[in-house]
């Protein structure tokens, strides 16, 4: 069997990763939670894909399944994650070790817990180059080079400090440097700015944008913050209750959202409400129980536009506009005709 790390030249327009019908279940004492159901999504080559949704929608589960870090009680119940002819959904632990940190790397939400508190930054950055044959001096030089890439002032001296000696923004820069050090094809960023202050958030988003353009890697940017997604991403997928309900180019989806959930989510964002108001819109109701996902549309119970068909028939992803799909019967061309 060929090593999964082996690259094969691929045309630019072919997606880097294509997820086909991926389903993930979590076994819990209270029953099986169908956390992801039938996800179809492509991570385009050299672009930034945003994954948006509220807590419990499965965006982190999807991100973790792309890097093989799902928890013990998770089970991939179906579907495939294809990357360069390999199916990541069926990869064994050995094969994952060749990929993870090498071709797929990740930036986590909290940079303090992502870094080892008892070793220096330099030690950690040299350790992750264990696959390379180079000398210590070469690895050290490479670590400095990448700390400079993330615009850390006085990079060489930072190799000897411990994570607690750095500020939150600097720590996240170190994490980004470490994630990019191996020149991955796919960088997964799971809410990388949530733990940071507003002015730092924009610094990190701008930095990610610059580095993505420089390195040409694909980025999966998981966030609940619509503003940063609009700022950074080329494409976006909106998730609700374990499904992708809408996907498409950021400009299309943000300007003309077609799924009622996407519309409601955008309406709730106080940043989009220009006139000061004392009464902010909300989405009434709660998420459905994912132990028994509803038969019809998952959003039906909270949707103001639901009709009879939504209760009985689960909507597929209908093409809503060129390059934009929405999982809603209202977008079905047949519905227009009738």
């Amino acid at each position: 069997m060929a090593s999964p790390a082996a690259t094969r030249p691929a045309p630019q327009d072919e997606p880097l990763v294509s997820i086909d019908g991926l389903s993930v279940d979590f076994a819990t004492p209270r029953g099986t939670i169908h956390a992801l159901r039938n996800i179809d999504l492509e991570v385009p080559r050299g672009k930034v894909l945003g994954l948006v949704g509220e807590s419990g929608c499965g965006k982190s589960t999807l991100a973790y399944s792309l890097i093989g870090l799902l928890s013990e009680n998770a089970r991939i119940a179906g579907g495939a994650i294809r990357m360069d002819g390999h199916d990541l959904a069926r990869l064994g632990p050995r094969a994952w070790r060749d990929l993870r940190g090498q071709r797929i790397s990740m930036i986590f939400q909290d940079p303090m817990t992502a870094l080892n508190p008892v070793t220096t930054i330099g030690r950690q950055m040299m350790d992750i180059q264990y696959r390379d044959p180079g000398t210590r001096a070469q690895k050290r030089a490479r670590a400095i080079e990448f700390l400079e890439q993330v615009q850390l002032p006085d990079a060489a001296s930072k190799l000897d400090v411990y994570p607690h000696q750095l500020s939150g923004g600097m720590r996240q820069r170190v994490c980004i440097a470490m994630a990019l050090l191996t020149r991955p094809d796919l960088l997964i960023a799971d809410e990388p700015t949530t733990a940071l202050d507003a002015t730092l958030e924009m610094q990190i988003v701008t930095l990610l944008r610059e580095l993505q353009e420089k390195f040409g890697c694909s980025v999966l940017f998981v966030s609940h913050h619509l503003g940063t997604v609009a700022e950074l991403c080329d494409e976006v997928a909106v998730m609700y209750a374990g499904e992708v309900v809408e996907r498409g180019a950021v400009a299309e989806v943000f300007n003309a959202p077609r799924h009622p959930y996407t519309q409601a989510l955008f309406d709730c964002d106080p940043a989009r409400i220009r006139v000061a108001t004392r009464h902010l819109p909300t989405i009434p109701g709660t998420l459905p129980d994912l132990r028994q996902p509803p038969r019809g549309c998952a959003f039906r119970a909270r949707c103001g536009k639901a009709f009879a068909r939504c209760e009985v028939e689960h909507p597929p992803l209908y093409p809503a506009a060129p390059g934009q799909d929405a999982r809603c019967h209202l977008v079905d061309p047949a519905e227009d005709a009738s």
């Binding site: 002015t199 730092l200 610094q203 609009a230 700022e231 300007n255 964002d269 940043a271 989009r272």
Partner: peptide, 25 residues
């Protein structure tokens, strides 16, 4: 002003080219 600008609008067309505030508190 910097704080107001560091509050990106959820509108891809309003993507700004401004330079975010450098340094940290």
């Amino acid at each position: 002003k910097a704080l107001l600008e560091a509050n990106p609008e959820p509108d891809p067309e309003a993507r700004q080219d401004y330079v975010p505030l450098s340094g940290e508190v």
